[in-house]
Simulated assay, not measured.
Amino acid sequence: MSQPSLAIDKLLNKLPELKSEIQKVIVGQNTIIEEIVVSLLAGGHCLLEGVPGLAKTLMVRTLADALDLPFRRIQFTPDLMPTDIVGTEVLEEDHVTGKRFFKFNKGPLFASIVLADEINRTPPKTQAALLEAMQEFSVTYGGQTYPLDRPFFILATQNPIEQAGTYPLPEAQLDRFLLYIKIGYPTAEEEVKILSSTTGTTKVKVAPVLNAAEIIQLQSLVREVSISEALIQYVSLLVRATRPDITPLAYIKEWVRWGAGPRAGQALILTAKARALSLGRYAVTAEDLQAMAYPVLRHRLLMNFRAEAENITPDMATAALIQGVEKPKGKL
């Protein structure tokens, strides 16, 4: 990236402000907030997983409040149909001519930020309609294609503990999410602060920080962040080392059934660029790549039966990967 102008500097200074606005409502979870912002800047979508009551929905609503963008929430249920999210045609009458015609009524997908709540509670047909929109940035109905608003950002949530009556996303569809973010319990100190701040009369107001044009400009800037050839080689080594048939790492051979594809490398570079930009840097470091490796690979490593039986997680495999693949030396 060339030397940033004052206008770009001013725009980048809004990113810490955006995080601060979210943190007015969300206590702790700083890494989670950073990863969501990174996904937004990289132009991808997020899958959030956590047990009930960890403020997943609140976090998405707060992000929407901090962005001057249209927001819709879709509660996914077993009886939800594709037309419920995409939209449908209705028969209308022209009061002047008396002629009848079909008009397409847009569904809740036609918003810039969409919360797909409990995505694993709806059947595959409806999941597929959402995932098609995520990939194509458009929906097709009655043979006609309707483009979606830009920016278009899907945040889907799922509950890991209630699996009865759910429809888990297949691995090929999980791969459509740029990041898979796991939300854990707060610390003791954070929990006390949550209890104190949410049970009184004070209501925090979140101010919008960025609009649609600014987000699109930031997404364009992410692509301009520089990354050295050595680090691109490092990404290739990391991704290739996840594949059991060619990896030099015994840990991966032992625990991983299927490794990550090239899309994982693309996601790793893009999110590392977005992370660098969000931290005020114009070049990617190895630290950026290692930090983003966990949410990028979490849903792209398929663990074998033995690993599942012994509670070996994709995060453990990623940690072994980072430990086992040598970082490039010298100037990056």
Score class of each variant (00 low, 15 high):
Val225Arg: 04
Val206Pro: 13
Ile215Val: 13
Val235Gly: 00
Ile216Ala: 11
Ile161Val: 10
Leu155Ala: 05
Ser197Tyr: 02
Thr202Val: 07
Arg223Leu: 03
Glu214Met: 13
Ile161Tyr: 11
Leu155Gln: 01
Pro186Asn: 07
Asn211Lys: 15
Lys203Val: 06
Val209Cys: 14
Ser226Glu: 12
Lys193Leu: 04
Leu178Arg: 08
Glu229Arg: 14
Ile181Gly: 06
Tyr185Pro: 01
Gln233Asn: 14
Leu155Arg: 00
Gln217Arg: 12
Thr202Pro: 02
Arg223Pro: 08
Gln233Thr: 15
Gly200Thr: 03
Leu218Tyr: 03
Arg223Gly: 06
Phe153Val: 01
Ile161Lys: 09
Gln158Thr: 00
Pro168Val: 11
Gly184Glu: 15
Lys193Trp: 01
Ile227Ala: 11
Tyr234Ile: 01
Tyr234Asn: 02
Ala164Cys: 05
Asp175Tyr: 09
Gly165His: 10
Leu195Val: 12
Asn159Ser: 08
Leu178Ala: 13
Ser226Gly: 09
Gln158Glu: 06
Glu189Met: 01
Leu231Trp: 15
Tyr167Leu: 00
Gln163Arg: 04
Ser220Val: 13
Ile227Pro: 12
Gln233Val: 15
Ser226Cys: 09
Glu229Lys: 15
Thr187Ala: 07
Ala188Pro: 00
Ser228Asn: 10
Ile216Gln: 09
Thr198Ser: 13
Ile216Val: 10
Leu218Gly: 01
Asp175Gly: 06
Thr199Tyr: 14
Glu189Gln: 01
Phe177Ser: 10
Asn211Met: 14
Gln163Tyr: 06
Tyr234His: 05
Lys203Gly: 06
Leu174Arg: 07
Val225Asp: 14
Phe177Tyr: 07
Gln158Asn: 02
Ala213Met: 10
Gln163Met: 07
Glu162Arg: 10
Ala164Gln: 10
Tyr167Val: 00
Gln233Gly: 13
Ser197Arg: 14
Pro186His: 07
Val235His: 03
Ile154Arg: 08
Thr187Cys: 04
Leu169Phe: 00
Thr166Val: 06
Gln163Val: 08
Ser228Asp: 11
Ile161Glu: 08
Glu214Val: 15
Val206Leu: 07
Leu174Tyr: 00
Leu178Glu: 13
Tyr185Ala: 02
Val204Gly: 05
Thr199Leu: 15
Ala207Glu: 15
Leu210Tyr: 05
Glu171Val: 11
Gln219Gly: 03
Ala164His: 05
Asn159Pro: 08
Thr199Cys: 12
Ala212Gly: 11
Val222Asp: 10
Val225Pro: 15
Glu189Asn: 00
Thr166Asp: 06
Gly200Pro: 02
Leu231Ala: 09
Lys203Pro: 08
Leu178Asn: 11
Asp175Ser: 06
Gln219Lys: 03
Gln233Ile: 15
Pro208Arg: 09
Leu178His: 07
Pro170Tyr: 13
Ser228His: 07
Gln173Leu: 05
Glu190Pro: 02
Leu195Pro: 02
Ser220His: 13
Ile227Gly: 12
Ala213Pro: 12
Ile181Phe: 02
Pro168Ser: 04
Glu190Gln: 09
Leu218Cys: 03
Ala230Gly: 09
Val235Ile: 14
Leu210Glu: 02
Glu190Met: 02
Glu191Lys: 07
Tyr167Ala: 00
Gln217Ser: 14
Ser236Cys: 10
Glu224Cys: 03
Ala164Met: 12
Ala172Asp: 03
Gln217Pro: 12
Thr202Ser: 09
Lys193His: 04
Gln233His: 12
Leu221Asn: 09
Lys205Ser: 09
